[in-house]
Amino acid sequence: MMDLTKGQWVKHVVTHPFEGFEDLRWKKGGSMKISWFIVFLLFFSVLAYNRMYGFQYYSSYDKIFNLVPYIFQSIIIFLTWVVANWSMCTLFDGEGTMKNIFINTAYALVPYIVGSLLCTFLSHSLIQDEYIFIQTISIITECWTVILLISGQKAVHQFTFGKTLALIALTIVAMVAILFLLVLVLTLFQQIAIFIMSIYTELSYRIRV
């Protein structure tokens, strides 16, 4: 029973929102490789959604193209979620390891990625009046991802439903805190870099004279 390959496990988990993650946990069917691939796909779907969307729905500001916001919207947010969730679950006596949280979250994102890629594709063949189809698809896939996310959290930490919701809320708070500290650290390092640069400039002028 349940002797699936790593790829088949993804399908099993996504199509069985309520017991899929439990099976995954007991059979240890998750794969970091596939998870990283899904995170990369998430990045690509965000990029496609912002830059390759049908012109009749959305026109991006073409004078500037900067990858950083898209990396932030996908990979950074994902990693922050994993770290914040792991830090919070240790306080709540959750059973999940960092690796398992990573895998569960990545697998839960599959419907969202598929949905947004599908919407991007459809946006090229539909007109504005038919936007309802795109909207339906995106709402369904987003709800699906949320359900998977909750059930994944529940399975990986072996929590009750209420405790899972509380954990998710606290995770979001922790994410905000982490991102704030990150920005703070970055600014600090920037200041140090500017300081060193100005010392270098000063010295180089002095030496020349």
Partner: peptide
């Protein structure tokens, strides 16, 4: 329309084209 970034007009033209 695409050059002019006139989205709504582009949409109508696309409807006809499709």
């Amino acid at each position: 329309y695409k050059t002019a970034i006139a989205r709504d007009r582009y949409d109508r033209a696309y409807e006809g084209y499709r």
